[in-house]
């Protein structure tokens, strides 16, 4: 079993405020790994630091054994690290097709972009129906599908999901989880940050609990799901 993504002692600051301190974790290839934590714990910061959008002050990030710490996001994306970001971050005045095209501009994905777009349209027929609609005028659920489709355009080997179910209707939430499992079954490794702690622990092989920028607990998804502290703090049980 090899680790696809390894993080060692990562420190991240915004000005003087520390957002991550000595975060270490590893994500095994082919697995779903969950990060659980309260609002402001640093989950999104961790994802952005891995992606190279925020520059960590200390520590290392390795992907497939290559050090990628502090590299720009166009480099990390091109290594195969994809992201479905918090708040979706689609391009509102670009059409659905144009949004997808933007995901497929990475050198690693460019040659196959047409074919990948067909695959994305097969997976999300709704996007195909609305291919020329401006992305900003779509519903929240459709935008989330677009964000996922756009990420797939880059042929990622790892997808970091940041609260993909936030603000969506229950049936759409189920659909999102179904998609995550389908992608994982196709061999894509998943790093999952979710409000919906119970479901995310249920589907993950490994999980970490982040509190005030530190990892305070880790274990298999199943073991954390039955841990009293986790149940109390994050599932309100």
């Amino acid at each position: 079993m090899s680790a696809l993504l390894e993080i060692e002692n990562l420190d991240l600051y915004y000005g003087d405020a520390q957002a991550l301190s000595e975060v270490s974790l590893s994500v095994d290839e082919g697995k779903i790994v969950a990060i659980v934590g309260a609002n402001g714990a640093g989950k999104s910061s961790l994802i952005r630091a891995i992606a190279g959008i925020e520059k960590p002050r200390g520590g290392r990030v390795r992907f497939r054994g290559n050090e990628i710490t502090g590299q720009e996001s166009y480099t990390t994306c091109n290594q195969g690290i994809g992201q479905v970001a918090e708040g979706r971050q689609i391009f509102p005045t670009l059409s659905v097709v144009e949004n997808l095209e933007m995901g497929g501009l990475l050198p690693r994905a460019r040659a196959k972009a047409k074919q990948t777009m067909d695959e994305v349209f097969t997976m999300f027929p709704r996007l195909a129906e609305r291919r020329d609609q401006l992305a900003g005028t779509m519903s929240g659920g459709e935008q989330q599908m677009l964000a996922i489709g756009r990420c797939l355009m880059g042929q990622p080997e790892l997808i970091m999901f940041d609260e993909p179910s936030l603000g969506l209707a229950p049936t759409v939430v189920q659909e999102v989880f179904h998609i995550i499992r389908t992608l994982n079954a196709k061999g894509i490794t998943i790093l999952l940050v979710e409000q919906n702690v119970a479901v995310s622990l249920k589907i993950s092989a490994q999980a970490y609990v982040l509190e005030n920028g530190r990892i305070v607990m880790s274990g298999t998804g199943g073991s954390l799901l039955h841990d009293d502290r986790v149940r109390q703090a994050y599932m309100g049980l």
């Binding site: 992606a51 959008i53 720009e72 996001s73 166009y74 990390t76 994306c77 091109n78 992201q83 970001a85 971050q89 689609i90 391009f91 509102p92 005045t93 670009l94 144009e98 949004n99 095209e101 933007m102 995901g103 501009l105 990475l106 756009r150 990420c151 355009m153 880059g154």
Partner: peptide, 23 residues
């Protein structure tokens, strides 16, 4: 053009542009 669309994407959502790996 792809480059032209990518420039519009940057204008539209700077963070989004970084998320998809635009330079």
């Amino acid at each position: 053009t792809n480059t032209g669309k990518a420039i519009r994407a940057c204008a539209d959502n700077n963070l989004g542009a970084k998320v998809v790996g635009l330079n």
